[in-house]
């Protein structure tokens, strides 16, 4: 393949990664922005979403689209419920202390990972894509499903943006993010907002996982790399900023796709991680964020 088409292919792959990454990072960013909690277990919610999607799809016979759509609805709901329980039982009792919650979410990471290994096993299993239409470019055919992931992600991101900026729920969330004590004084049930945001963040990760699982397969260790990438996206984009998160996701996804198509993926990861650590050291508010209060 010539360089141009090769680059196009790498860019398309990168955009698919960006689409999934944006959803997942948005969940992480919401949880951090509103609750000031760094959720290290976020990658495991992603993994749980994928594993549950496989389980749900395997229960349903008939056209693969039925199983996939069921998984797309049910899997995030279950993951959201798990997150809700975890929030009520653990995070709330820690008073959302940043350091204690990191240690606790590391604990959750190990628990979820081990339970997945015990009950789901070490195999990687695929979920059938809901449709297999291929779009033919002059140089290569490309999976129509992958392009639909990008579309789905755009729809979901727009919906989240709409909820955050144009509805009462969004207003309550932003008020809590801005100053939780004053919000409480104005009668906002901050406690319930926290629970809802944590569940919502986990559900976004689960949706991202269900969308990607027809391409990558479900595996109990699949949460680690997306977690690190999401951290990178959230940091570059500025913690708690929706626009920054989306821009950073596209940037990171595209460069990840293109760099790993032409260079060693390990080297790409090393450089990306190092650059992000440097961003955090020298520009802690992120490349697009404003200085924190």
């Amino acid at each position: 393949m010539a360089f141009g088409p090769h680059l196009l292919l790498a860019a398309l792959e990168g955009l698919v990664t960006s689409a999934v990454l944006a959803l997942m990072a948005l969940g992480l960013s919401l949880v951090f922005g509103v609750m000031r909690v760094v959720n290290v277990a976020h990658g495991e919610f992603f993994m749980l979403g994928a594993v549950l999607a496989w389980w749900i799809a395997s229960l349903v016979t008939g056209h693969p689209a039925i199983g996939f759509l069921l998984a797309l609805v049910i899997s995030p709901l279950i993951v959201g419920a798990v997150a809700l329980v975890a929030e009520r039982l653990v995070l709330r009792r820690l008073n959302y202390n940043p350091e204690a919650t990191i240690v606790a979410t590391i604990g959750m990471l190990y628990i979820i990972q081990q339970l997945a290994l015990t009950f789901y096993g070490p195999q990687a299993r695929p979920v059938d894509a809901p449709f297999t239409y291929r779009i033919l470019f002059p140089w290569f055919g490309y999976s129509g499903y992958k392009l639909s992931i990008i579309a789905a992600s755009i729809v979901l991101l727009t919906a989240t943006w709409f909820v955050l900026t144009r509805t009462k729920i969004g207003l309550v969330m932003r008020a809590t993010q801005y100053d939780s004590e004053t919000a409480q004084a104005f009668g906002i049930p901050v406690d319930r907002v926290y629970a809802g945001v944590f569940a919502l963040g986990a559900m976004l990760a689960a949706i991202a996982a269900v969308l990607i699982v027809p391409i990558t397969q479900a595996h109990y260790l699949m949460g680690m790399d997306p977690l690190l990438l999401s951290f990178i996206v959230v940091i570059i984009g500025g913690l708690g900023s929706l626009r920054g998160t989306v821009v950073a996701a596209v940037l990171i996804g595209l460069s990840d796709g293109i760099i790993s198509a032409f260079f060693s993926p390990t080297l790409a990861k090393i450089i990306a991680t190092l650059l992000v650590a440097m961003v955090l050291v020298f520009r802690p508010q992120g490349l697009f964020g404003t200085a924190s209060r």
Binding site: V103, I106, G107, Y110, I111, Q114
Partner: peptide, 12 residues
């Protein structure tokens, strides 16, 4: 790993 996870949460 389950033990490690549970221990971490119970400790904090």
């Amino acid at each position: 790993l389950l033990i490690v996870g549970v221990a971490l949460i119970l400790l904090v």
